[in-house]
Every structure is written in structure tokens, then in C-alpha cells.
């Protein structure tokens, strides 16, 4: 049993931590979420089969992050939220600058767009895996992803002109 758990940890620890990191934008909190997720997996190991494991882990991670973000939002001062509007990377984009700007822009997307971009475009999961994780149909994943990408492009265009 412990061997199976260890295999799942080896296979998915980076993906779980990474998703939590992008969603929360806080490495310390992301570590806590990753640990909570794998503790849950350890207790529910009999109920999670090999095929479902990745989608199950991603779903649990995402839900834990969204809970934390909701709690965070309820305690965030309104003036802070207004001040957090991003100035954009400017016209002459360096690759790294664009990456940093994108991370912030993804963080400002609404759900499920944010998770879609992270799971598909950043983590490169298949459309089917993303659909399973977010409990959406394949068509919904494609439509929502299209909208999310458009929002990112439009924002980038707005700030770079």
C-alpha cells in the first residue's frame, strides 16, 4: 500500500505543487496544500484507482486552493484590490517579463478560466485530463479555453499599445 502511495507521490508531486503555486502565488501555502492533498490521498488510497489518480489529485488541489483564495479574498482590503491592477510588461517585452506578467494575468482570471489555462497551456495536460479534473465536457473545455486565451491576448494587447 505504501509502495503504491510512494509511486503516486513520485509521479505527481511536482504537478500538484506547481498547480497550487500558480493558483495561490505563494510557495509556502502551496506546500501546505500539496501536503494536505497527499494526506487525503493516503487516507483514500483504496478509493482512488490508477487511472483516476491524476485527475483526483488535481481536483483536490484546485479545490483546496480555491477555498484558500476565497478566505483570502474575504480578508483582503478593497483598496489593496484596486492597487493590484497590473501595469503590464510594456512595449519591449523580455521573455522573462512576459512570463511574470502572464503569471499575474492568469491569477486575475476568473474560474474556471484560470485553472483551464494552468492545466492545459502551462502544465500541458491533455484536453481529456483537463475535462476530467474540472468535471467539464470536452466541448466546454475547448470553448472556455478559447475565451480564456482571448482575454489574455486582449489584455496583453491593451497594455503593450
Amino acid at each position: 500500500m505504501s509502495l503504491r502511495f510512494r509511486r503516486l507521490v513520485n509521479a505527481y508531486e511536482d504537478q500538484v505543487f506547481s498547480l497550487a503555486c500558480y493558483l495561490l502565488r505563494d510557495r509556502s501555502e502551496a506546500q501546505d496544500v500539496a501536503q494536505e492533498t497527499f494526506v487525503k490521498l493516503w487516507h483514500r488510497l483504496d478509493d482512488v484507482n490508477k487511472k483516476q489518480a491524476r485527475a483526483w489529485l488535481m481536483k483536490v488541489t484546485r479545490n483546496a486552493c480555491l477555498d484558500r483564495l476565497r478566505q483570502r479574498r474575504s480578508t483582503t482590503d478593497v483598496t489593496e484590490t484596486i492597487a493590484a491592477v497590473d501595469p503590464g510588461p510594456g512595449q519591449n517585452l523580455h521573455h522573462q517579463q512576459l512570463g511574470e506578467w502572464l503569471q499575474r494575468a492568469i491569477g486575475n482570471l476568473k474560474e474556471p478560466y484560470r485553472s483551464l489555462v494552468l492545466l492545459r497551456d502551462v502544465q500541458q495536460n491533455s484536453y481529456q485530463d483537463v475535462a476530467n479534473t474540472l468535471e467539464l465536457s470536452l466541448d466546454q473545455v475547448k470553448v472556455y479555453l478559447y475565451r480564456a486565451r482571448r482575454v489574455l491576448r486582449e489584455r496583453l494587447q491593451e497594455v503593450s499599445t
Binding site: M1, S2, F5, R6, V9, E13, D14, Q15, V16, F17, S18, C21, Y22, R27, Q31, A34, Q35, F38, V39, W42, L93, H95, L98, G99, L102, Q103, V117, D121, V122, Q123, Q124, R149, L152, R153, L156, Q157, S160
Partner: peptide, 29 residues
């Protein structure tokens, strides 16, 4: 623009879990 965003998203990639977390995860059982 679309290419730049797509490439940058792919390059963000998966962030590896820190060693401390890896050790904690292996200690769960």
C-alpha cells in the same frame, strides 16, 4: 501576440516541488 503568450505559458511549465516538501510527502505513511 498569441504565439508569444502560448510560448510563454508553455515555458512557465511545471515548478518542481522543493526538497523539504518531497521529504514531508514521503513521510506521510
Amino acid at each position: 501576440n498569441a504565439y508569444q503568450i502560448q510560448n510563454s505559458l508553455e515555458n512557465l511549465g511545471i515548478q518542481p516541488a522543493p526538497a523539504d516538501l518531497k521529504r514531508r510527502l514521503r513521510g506521510i505513511p
